[in-house]
């Protein structure tokens, strides 16, 4: 049975509509106008226990609104949601013990106290006994490479250290479902890599389910086999990351480094020429032709080096969102 089961989920917000300028302000004061903004429309999602799923979409696409409904923070306007066998918006204690939501730009730790104080409070709130909470804190601190930072006031920690401490607090109760909203936002490359490997490790160790939104494609490619794409509140792709690449990028890029420069027309029968710069030639070759054409290239030319690449995922997804905007 799916651990996250969403059927026909929609959310419409009523927002005040105010025109700029003094006239607009006065009209807004006398007679407020509101309009209905559909943030999420008729979404269906089913996630099995242990999956790590990437949730992608441009700003304002409805990702965070969906996460808020899945965690029970806001009520859906229509549709049904079940997470870990519960209706999230009922906010039953048993449900809350099984989930966590990490928001990259928000902090839950007590700002003026060391993370250990917040962790003590978390342990007490979730009813984890002292010995067990100490064991978990040590384990998580090892995994996240945190040590004396845990006894320093949160305000004195770097962004990366703070994010890691936030993750510790969010995972101390060993939730079965993790909702992560931009967990690596603002972190440097090294810290991003550490957080990613920690999440992968945590998923392996505990079998937790992860639904992750991120603007860093590195997070998605490193962690998620499956992605959900959302645009203007509608889900329009639910499948493997690889399938997305196959569907949207039917060609692969082959880079050749030749011993001698050759005229461009000599490569026409192998694929479409993307660029040529002296000895370096870049060709786009259809996937089903790749093996045959690469064999031909190696046989026909004096090749010093050859490289086969997929176009970057962000480029593919960016292209997809641009196409959706155009329609």
């Amino acid at each position: 049975m799916a651990i996250v089961d969403v059927r026909g989920l929609s959310k419409t917000f009523r927002v005040a509509d105010k025109q700029p300028g003094l006239g607009g302000t006065l009209r807004h004061f006398v007679q407020r106008r509101h309009r209905l903004v559909p943030a999420v429309q008729d979404i269906n999602i089913s996630i099995e226990a242990g999956e790590i799923v990437g949730f992608l979409g441009p700003n304002g696409a409805g990702k965070t609104t969906t996460l808020k409904m899945l965690t029970g923070l806001i009520h859906p306007s229509a549709g049904s949601v079940r997470v870990a066998g519960h209706e999230p918006f009922r906010r039953q204690a048993d449900f809350l013990r099984q989930i966590t939501l990490v928001m990259g730009q928000k902090q839950q730790l007590i700002w003026d106290l060391p993370p250990l104080d917040s962790l003590r409070v978390h342990a007490a709130v979730y009813g984890i006994d002292t010995a067990e909470s100490k064991r978990r804190i040590t384990e998580l601190a090892d995994m996240l490479e945190l040590d004396e930072e845990l006894t320093r006031p949160v305000r004195k920690l770097s962004l990366g250290q703070r994010m890691k401490a936030e993750l510790m607090a969010a995972l101390l109760h060993q939730p079965a479902v993790l909702f992560l909203d931009e967990p690596t936002l603002g972190l440097d490359v090294n810290a991003q890599v550490r957080v990613r490997s920690f999440l992968a490790d945590y998923n392996r160790r505990t079998g937790a389910t992860v639904l992750l939104t991120s603007h860093y494609m590195g997070d998605i490619t490193a962690l998620c086999e499956r992605v959900l794409l959302i645009h203007q509140g509608r889900l329009f792709y639910d499948g493997s990351l690889e399938g997305l690449t196959d569907r949207l990028a039917p060609c692969r890029q082959v880079r050749l480094e030749l011993r001698h420069a050759l005229p461009a027309q000599m490569f026409e029968s192998y694929g479409s020429l993307e660029s040529q710069n002296g000895n370096e030639v870049r060709l786009l070759i259809e996937r089903d032709q790749l093996t045959r054409q690469v064999g031909r290239l190696l046989a026909d030319f004096d090749v010093c080096d050859l490289e086969v690449n997929d176009p970057p995922v962000e480029e593919i997804i960016g292209q997809l969102f641009r196409q959706r905007d155009a329609t």
């Binding site: 808020k68 965690t71 029970g72 923070l73 906010r91 204690a93 809350l96 013990r97 989930i99 966590t100 939501l101 928001m103 928000k106 839950q108 978390h122 709130v125 979730y126």
Partner: peptide, 12 residues
């Protein structure tokens, strides 16, 4: 500031 959301997600 959005801190309330964090509190609401805990069983207290």
């Amino acid at each position: 500031q959005g801190r309330l959301s964090g509190y609401l997600l805990q069983p207290l």
